[in-house]
Amino acid sequence: MADGHWSRRHVLAVSFQATLAAAAAPALARTIRGEMPWTPGQVDAPYPFDGARFLTPDERRCVSAMVERLIPSDARGPGAREAGVIDFIDNQLAGFYGRGERWYMQGPFGPSTPEQGYQFEEPPAGFYRRGIAALDAACRERHGGRVFAALDAATQDAVLAAMEKGAFDLPSGVPAKAFFSLVRENAIEGFFCDPLYGGNRDMVGWRLVGFPGARYDYRPYLNHNGQRITLEPVGLKGGPTWNPR
């Protein structure tokens, strides 16, 4: 090989490895000929909220406190608490999202750009667990032994603002800014998701912004001549008007 020639042994070794690789490749692709297959009753239904939890009660309190400061209940309407954002996040962490099952989770790990998305070695559930522990440890140290959830609202806001700016160091090398933005992102998802997933309870998020929900057809409203259209929001599993009572 050193002189640039392939030895017989080398060729054999390479082709053997190639065969192994081909055999090990999972059969994700398949060829469909003629008509598209169709099976009665087959459906790509969403994975609805199933009540499963990942977080411990203490961890839940911490994340609840975070999301309730991010989307507070105030004069403008219900917030993360009423929307059940913590139920959404906890259920997601207990499912395939928490396990990072649908992501590429191999190396290399390390510094990345925001465009590259989630780049941590551990899947979101593990990252939450480590982040919460670090946040509570940091709060105990700086705020007289009190965990994040036990702080008053103003102090919680200050901690979150500092995390967002990257001006709040967490122990065990947890990147505070990244942890903050993950929780923030999940809080928004939990506030505006379809109610099917456990968050956006009673469609409070949609009502706040006037989103009419998962409707298929807006043709009846095309000629509204600029008039305001108020429609009750509709989720994937419908709304109260779907039930004949």
Binding site: Y216, D217, R219, P220, G238, T241, W242, R245
Partner: peptide, 23 residues
Amino acid sequence: PAEAVMTAGRDIYADNCSACHKA
């Protein structure tokens, strides 16, 4: 059918069926 059934049916139809089968 009873009015309540028709009202619910109309809403279910509007949200699920009307995009293809038309209002």
